[in-house]
Structures are given as structure tokens and as C-alpha cells.
Design a protein around this nucleic acid. Structure first.
Lengths: 147, 147
DNA sequence: ATGCATTTGCGAACCATTCTCATTAATAAG
DNA sequence: CTTATTAATGAGAATGGTTCGCAAATGCAT
């Protein structure tokens, strides 16, 4: 069992939740996901380990994990709920519209402004989703790498 | 028929689409929507005008409108597709995670930084999508109105 | 007006998600 | 360790948004 998974289950225990075999397995799968799987996808991975675990249980367990604050449930594309361990460092994405490549980035400045804007609108910012779409600049115009 | 609705149907015609009675009505409903209705909601409004129009047709027509670029299909809350006429000036969205309400905002500062970040990554920014998720602040904590 | 491809309406199908409920199992107490 | 209590599970049905398939209706060019 991974380190992150142990954190998940120990927090669940602290929250008064019972630690069951399905929950251990689901914690493990969620903790080691570096993508943003939706629940059916998590279920597939879980079922590969223990096929007796039901889809309902995955839904319920993910909800429990989210309640502890250690997992985030986003509703990004096409209506699915996508899961992400809260532990990893936040980042946004830039999509190369020519190749479809995904570039990860982080801008503290933008993050700060987002919180500011939210507060001005009367909200506490809890999450955000920022995707930039761009066309690669001609090589000469790009910032040069270190020589 | 509203002005904006006429723009919608004329663009459809230009795109080689046939102009039908259902499409006129749906265009009218979509054009005058100042909120961000999902398709079932649009269907309700359409059915109030002509109950013989089917839900399928609303889904299909909204898709056609989106293809012409005159309507945007967002996927904000819980998997629903929400609709908005493209005509209005650019803005981003903040979702009230408690009520699902959509608040529109615009931050030139954030826009500027996005372009900057993209350029630093070697891209020319062509589009972006920013959605903030927030919880309403308690009234006392909110920025006070002018006295 | 006529022919034909596009649209429509209807219901079935799909997919993610939630719910119900009888059964199983984790935890606390003895 | 055993038992009682009560939460968690599995299976499948229910729900709600969205899409599909097909026969019938309709827009549009001629």
C-alpha cells in the first residue's frame, strides 16, 4: 500500500469511518492515480485488483474521501466527475491547438488574482479550472533555453 | 422574433441548414435567455410555446447552433450542458458550488497574464477557458456596498 | 407543385450517478 | 475471544441527462 493511500485511510479512521478492505483498495488506486480518472475508470482499476468490489462502493467511497478533503471531485468535461488526490501540487493546462499536446503550468500571479476576483464577487474560491489554448510561436520568437 | 434569434437562424441558413418551425422557436428561446439554461430547461420553455416539439429536437438544434459558433455549450455543474448565446462580450464564469448558480465576470488583468504565461511557454494564446468554483461568503465578510 | 435529402418525433438505448434493502463485516464492550 | 451494534457492501433497480434508430413529415431547389 502506498504512502499516500495510508494517509487517506488514516484520515478516514480519524473521521470515524470504518476501514474496510474495499476502502483500502480504492484508496490505493486513487492515491496512485496521476491522471484525473472518473469513477467508472477508478472502478475498472479497482475491479482489476478485486472484482468483487461493486461500482456503488466506489462511488460511495470516493464521496467519503472527498468529505475528508483529501480528494477533490471536479466536474470537468462531459459531465463526468473526475477525481484527483488533493496532495499533488496544483497546475493548469495549456493545449497546443496544432498538435493537441498538453503543457502543464502554474502561475501564482493568476491564482492570486482568481481568489481576488472571487472575493470581489462575494465568494470564497474553492477550486478553479483554467485551460489555455495556443499556437506554437515560431522558434526564433521563443524564449531561448539556457545555453 | 427577437433580433438575436434572427441572427441565429440566418447564420444557420448560411451554414446550409434548413430553417424549420422548431428551430425558429428554439432560436427565440435561446436568444432571449439571459441565464445559462441546460437543455431540459430550454425544452421546458420551448414546450410552453409549442408542446409538439420534442426533447430530441432541442438537443439536436442546440448542437447545430453550437456548430455555427453562435452558441456556447459549457459543462459546468453535475454533467449538464449549459447553453449561452455567444453574442455577448467575452467573460468567464464563477460557479456557486452550493446553489449551482453561474456568475459572469471579466478580469482584464487575468486575461493579460494568461497571454503572458502562454508566451513564456512558447505559444500564442488563441483562446482560454476559466471557471472559478466558490462558496458564498458570509454576508458580514463580504465587501460592503456603498453607504 | 414534385422529388429528395434533411428534420422531426417517438421511444429505446446509454451512461453516470444515486437509491433500496437484505446481507456482511468492522468496531466497541464484555 | 465472543457478541451486539451499526456502518458498509453488493446487486440491481431507479433516475436524469443525452444520444440513437427509424419511419413519417417537411423544407427547399427545381
Amino acid at each position: 500500500m502506498s504512502d499516500a493511500a495510508e494517509v487517506l485511510i488514516s484520515h478516514c479512521r480519524q473521521a470515524g469511518q470504518r476501514i474496510t478492505a474495499p476502502r483500502r483498495i480504492i484508496a490505493d488506486v486513487v492515491a496512485k492515480a496521476d491522471d484525473h480518472p472518473d469513477v467508472p475508470e477508478i472502478y475498472r482499476r479497482v475491479a482489476a485488483i478485486d472484482p468483487s468490489i461493486s461500482l456503488s462502493t466506489v462511488y460511495r467511497t470516493v464521496k467519503v474521501f472527498a468529505a475528508t478533503g483529501l480528494v477533490e471531485r471536479h466536474s470537468f468535461a462531459g459531465g463526468r466527475v473526475q477525481i484527483e488526490p488533493t496532495s499533488q501540487a496544483h497546475h493548469d493546462h495549456l493545449i497546443d491547438i496544432e498538435s493537441g499536446a498538453v503543457v502543464e503550468f502554474r502561475s501564482d500571479e493568476i491564482e492570486r488574482l482568481q481568489a481576488l476576483v472571487a472575493r470581489e464577487l462575494g465568494f470564497e474560491l474553492t477550486a478553479h479550472r483554467l485551460v489555455l489554448y495556443g499556437r506554437p510561436l515560431a522558434r526564433k520568437a521563443r524564449r531561448a533555453r539556457k545555453p
